[in-house]
């Protein structure tokens, strides 16, 4: 399976179906095989609810992959199956080439999981609970590694504190420390920055980058679109249990990102002059704003023509600005288009 290509649906931007993604400067390491390989994954809960339908996904070694989707899309379900918390109803999952059922030891020892919900043993002390996690994953005790992880997460001063005496953000750090202390090769962060302040969020992004530089593959889910846009090498969009698109972040922005050019006019217009109809302009702001919407990839060339046409029509503007649709806009559109 070539994960560089992704099936995109036609969208209202007219971007069309993407045949082949352009070659990307690949930050991911060049190790062969995939960090995570999922084929035909299905999950039907006991309630009868189908949380995942035929999910195929291939994650490369060393990349940061963001899984985006609305509430209830199936992100946590997907992660939980990979990590062994939920049993799949069908399909296969391999972690670094190891099947999660048949070779569960090899698969799981490579994985670190920071779940969405804060779950802590309130009475345990920070140092003890982190040391515990390392042992549980079969690694020999290493006070040096425990110390390094605690220091990396600014928890060293709190090492003898009971978890119940920590703030929510601190508890989340402890959960990250627990997930990192056995030196996983693949880290799952299920909404790592939900309910986290700006400071901690930035620290977390730094941590993720550091880990990636060490070759750790990171799969995160998030509702903060800027986070995916800023952090992820690739983005997968999931909705109602189906993966709608998997694409390089920049490529996705390029292909689906609509741009808008807004012109602030000197004098109000009653209507768009007929000579400009071909551009599909929108008039707003009491006739003082003209908005031109164009596709970033193909329509850029029309801007000079538009400006010339404006000049010819005697329309004077005193200011202009452009704006690009965020991943959020793209995401909302993708979801809407896939559920007509």
């Amino acid at each position: 399976m070539d994960d560089g290509t992704a099936v995109l649906r036609d969208t209202d931007t007219g971007a069309g179906t993407v045949a082949e993604a352009a070659p990307q400067p690949d930050r991911a390491s060049q190790r062969p095989g995939s960090a995570l390989h999922i084929t035909g994954l299905n999950k039907r809960y006991d309630s009868g609810f189908r949380a995942l339908e035929d999910v195929d996904l291939d994650i490369r070694h060393g990349e940061i992959f963001a899984l985006l989707g609305p509430n209830g899309a199936g992100k946590t379900t997907l992660i939980s199956i990979v990590c062994g918390l939920v049993t799949a109803s069908g399909g296969t999952v391999a972690v670094d080439g190891h099947d999660i059922e048949r070779e569960f030891r090899a698969a799981r020892s490579r994985i670190g999981l920071v779940p969405q919900e804060l779950a802590t043993d309130a009475f345990a002390k920070v140092h003890a609970t982190v040391t515990y996690s390392r042992g549980l994953f079969g690694k020999p005790p290493s006070p040096a590694i425990v110390e390094r992880v605690l220091r990396d997460l600014s928890l060293w001063d709190k090492r003898d504190e009971r978890l119940m005496n920590l703030s929510g953000g601190m508890k989340r750090r402890v959960m990250i420390a627990k997930a990192l202390v056995h030196e996983p090769r693949i880290l799952f962060l299920d909404e790592p920055t939900a309910g986290v302040d700006v400071e901690l969020r930035r620290e977390m992004w730094e941590l993720v980058r550091r880990l990636r530089d060490d070759g750790v593959t990171i799969i995160l889910t998030t509702h903060y679109i800027e986070e995916a846009e800023e952090m992820a090498d690739r983005v997968g969009v999931i909705s109602q249990g189906r993966i709608i698109v998997v694409e390089h972040t920049t490529e996705l922005m390029r292909q689906l990102g609509r741009k808008q050019l807004t012109l602030h006019l000197q004098h109000a217009l009653e209507a768009v002059p007929p000579s400009l109809h071909a551009f599909g302009l929108e008039l707003s702001g009491g006739g003082r704003e003209l908005t031109y919407t164009y596709d970033d990839t193909s329509d850029r060339a029309h801007i000079p023509e538009l400006l010339r046409a404006l000049d010819a029509a005697g329309i004077v503007f005193r200011d202009l600005h452009t704006q690009q649709s965020s991943l959020e806009d793209i995401f909302v559109r993708l979801v809407r288009d896939s559920n007509p």
């Binding site: 990590c83 062994g84 918390l85 569960f104 030891r105 090899a106 698969a107 799981r108 020892s109 994985i111 999981l113 779940p115 919900e117 804060l118 779950a119 802590t120 043993d121 309130a122 996690s133 549980l136 994953f137 079969g138 627990k178």
Partner: peptide, 18 residues
């Protein structure tokens, strides 16, 4: 029951232990 109740059972289930 305790880890089931406070949610920390996730770690046990995700660990490479039989």
């Amino acid at each position: 029951y305790f880890p089931k109740f406070n949610g920390t059972i996730y770690e046990l289930l995700s660990a490479p232990v039989s």
